[in-house]
């Protein structure tokens, strides 16, 4: 009875149909579109690598590239540090642990739109809680509406707030599986808490750290809503990130070919980052059969 029959292939078909029709084939088609001049009311016209050349010569592309680079790195490593700290903290004695974890998870349930609302409310010039506090202390306020760098920092904080639960959970799951005997024997051997962390705990959770890093790099690169809802990429397109750049090209300027070049680049970048993970998975899956 455990032989594979055609009906079993039929059972996996819907999943693969969805993946092919809505993700894989469109993504490949983006590759083709990126080699064309394409807008409304005309068939795509092949132009070779022109879109890529234009993109690489565009000042605004590079600005959004480096903005993305900055935000992604702040977000990923900020989350890693906070998530790891939280995971180690929660692995020890904590009163009402379930409740605490529930509260830490809460931001995961919130839409980006509301996350932007919260932080904008606290950061309104003069009257928002945070800026009011800064003003009372005589410290300059966070001028996210006019200062590109401040805006990108606010975007980063927002993204960390939203996605910390993901990083935390992956790391927490790893930390809680460390065998207690290992920690105990390290202590018996006279290891300081720092040495226990560095030589025992960190080594054991390293695979989880890499998985969390990889997923967060790939997901953070797509950042769109936070920027779009906070600044729309402004002032003067100073705070655009790659996804906003793509959106503007496609849905404001109707340059689908040019937008596809950006999109295809985002895709390739994601795959390059995922390569070690994909390779490890490939080897493991085909070895285990």
């Amino acid at each position: 009875m455990w032989t594979l029959r055609p009906v079993h292939y039929l059972m996996v078909a819907p999943v693969h149909l969805l993946l092919l029709v809505f993700i894989f084939v469109p993504a490949l088609y983006v590759g083709w579109l990126s080699l064309t001049h394409s807008s409304f009311g005309g068939p795509p016209e092949f132009v070779g690598l022109e879109n890529y050349a234009t993109m690489l010569a565009d000042r605004i592309f590079w600005r959004s590239f480096w903005n993305t680079f900055l935000v992604v790195n702040i977000v990923v490593y900020g989350e890693l540090a906070l998530g790891l700290g939280l995971a180690l903290l929660l692995a020890g004695w904590v009163p009402f642990k379930r409740v605490v974890i529930a509260i830490i998870l809460a931001p995961y349930a919130i839409t980006e739109v509301t996350a932007v609302i919260m932080w904008r409310y606290m950061l309104e010039p003069d009257v928002g809680m945070i800026n009011y506090a800064l003003k009372s202390l005589g410290v300059p306020q966070i001028e996210w509406a006019v200062e590109p760098f401040s805006a990108l920092m606010v975007v980063s904080v927002l993204a960390i707030w939203q996605h910390l639960p993901f990083t935390f959970l992956i790391l927490y799951a790893a930390v809680t599986t460390i065998p207690n005997e290992l920690i105990e024997s390290a202590k018996v051997d006279g290891a300081t808490p720092w040495q226990t962390f560095w030589f025992v705990k960190l080594r054991l959770i390293l695979p989880a750290v890499f998985v969390a890093l990889m997923f967060r790099y790939i997901f953070a690169m797509r950042i769109f809503s936070e920027v779009w809802l906070l600044t729309e990429g402004g002032p003067a397109r100073m705070t655009e990130v790659l996804a906003v750049y793509l959106y503007r090209q496609a849905f404001r300027y109707h340059e689908f070919g040019a937008a596809s070049a950006t999109g295809w680049m985002l895709l390739l970048l994601s795959l390059v980052i995922a390569l070690p993970y994909l390779r490890a998975m490939y080897v493991k899956m085909f070895r285990d059969g």
Partner: peptide, 23 residues
Amino acid sequence: TGSAFFMIFVRMFPPIIITLPLF
């Protein structure tokens, strides 16, 4: 197994790009 790997592979694709041909 190949199709299972395909599933993992496709998870890496950024959703925003598919809006371009689908629109």
